[in-house]
Computed example of a mutant assay.
Amino acid sequence: MGDSFGYIAFGDDELYARGALFSALRLLHYCPAAKVTVLTDRTCVFDGYPIQTVELTASRMTEMSFGGRYRFGIKAAGLVDLLKHCDRLFLMDTDMYPVGDMSGCFDRISPSHSVMNRLEGRPKVPYRAIEGRHFMLGDKMLTGDEPMWSSGVLGVHNSALPALADAYRAIEQLIGVVSAHTLEQFCIGVALSRNGCRIAPHRLPLRNYTTRGRKLFARRRLQTFFAGNGHLAVSQQIEQAASYRLWRAPIDLWKQPDIWHF
């Protein structure tokens, strides 16, 4: 089935789909032969680009999010859906984008080795609610003290599908018990660390605009990019995206005090 880069983009805010498209354009600059698949409810955004899309219907999103109770369940279930169609998958959040050659990422993915964004340490106070509840992730009883990995990127092998299915099922047990939005990354990190398997940070040439201030600035820059370049041929858009800046320079902070947020 081969290797694939992937994105999951959904929601009322088109920023997520536009962010995924911009990231994919930069990826195709550094890795022209890359296979890219996007699971999305806005397939029209990707029409005409060398990007495969898988449609997310409203009913499917409701199912994935446990009846709308936990929207990040869509990412956990979507990861499983995308991985079914490739040998190795490198999934990026829509606010992550390459700044260099990413082709070596698959060399670090194997049945016993996965890649995630970074190790965040032990979970915070909300996860103490798990202790003594006998919540299970596959054959492992959760304690709430397992290491937490950030899932801004996820590099996984097809053989991890059973572990990721266990992670998705475990999420439902925690909804309404753990008052945090990070259930998805917590359960995925635990699942990929079982049975002698390991996770490592990605250490790849990637940048992001995850914080409030960065996102405000990136939103404006993405709107400007597609307004000015969306009519060009795909090859030209790839070339323009490669040199287009989404990060804030000092002059941007000076000119636009409303984006001083970190």
Rank of each mutant, 00 (worst) to 15 (best):
N208Y: 13
H202L: 10
G19P: 04
G138I: 03
L216N: 01
A165P: 03
P123M: 09
H202F: 14
W260N: 14
A9P: 14
P50D: 00
L15Y: 15
K215S: 04
I259A: 07
S112N: 10
F106Q: 01
R221N: 07
F72A: 08
P111G: 03
V99L: 03
A77Q: 10
I251Q: 14
R169C: 15
R219E: 15
A241P: 11
R221Q: 15
L28F: 06
G104C: 04
R118S: 13
I175D: 09
K35N: 14
N158E: 10
L164T: 06
R42I: 00
V38S: 00
A20S: 07
S65N: 15
P257D: 08
L142N: 00
R108L: 07
I51D: 03
L161K: 02
G138D: 01
G48R: 12
G68H: 03
D258S: 13
A227Y: 09
D87E: 09
A170H: 05
P111M: 01
T43P: 14
E172L: 10
A180D: 15
D12H: 06
V45D: 03
L56I: 02
F135Q: 05
G68R: 01
I259M: 10
M64E: 12
T40Q: 02
E131L: 06
L183S: 11
M102S: 12
S151A: 13
S179C: 08
K75V: 01
V178C: 04
Q52R: 14
T182Y: 02
A9C: 13
A242T: 06
G2R: 12
N208Q: 15
L83C: 12
V38N: 00
T53I: 04
A218E: 14
R198Y: 04
L216M: 07
G138F: 05
G196Y: 10
V38C: 02
G189K: 01
D95S: 01
P257A: 09
F22A: 03
G78S: 04
R42F: 00
V38A: 01
E55A: 06
C105S: 10
Y49A: 01
Q173V: 08
G228C: 11
S235W: 02
L253F: 14
L222F: 00
L15S: 12
S243Y: 03
D145K: 15
V99G: 02
L206Q: 13
M141C: 14
S150P: 01
R108M: 09
S114G: 13
G19R: 12
Y7M: 01
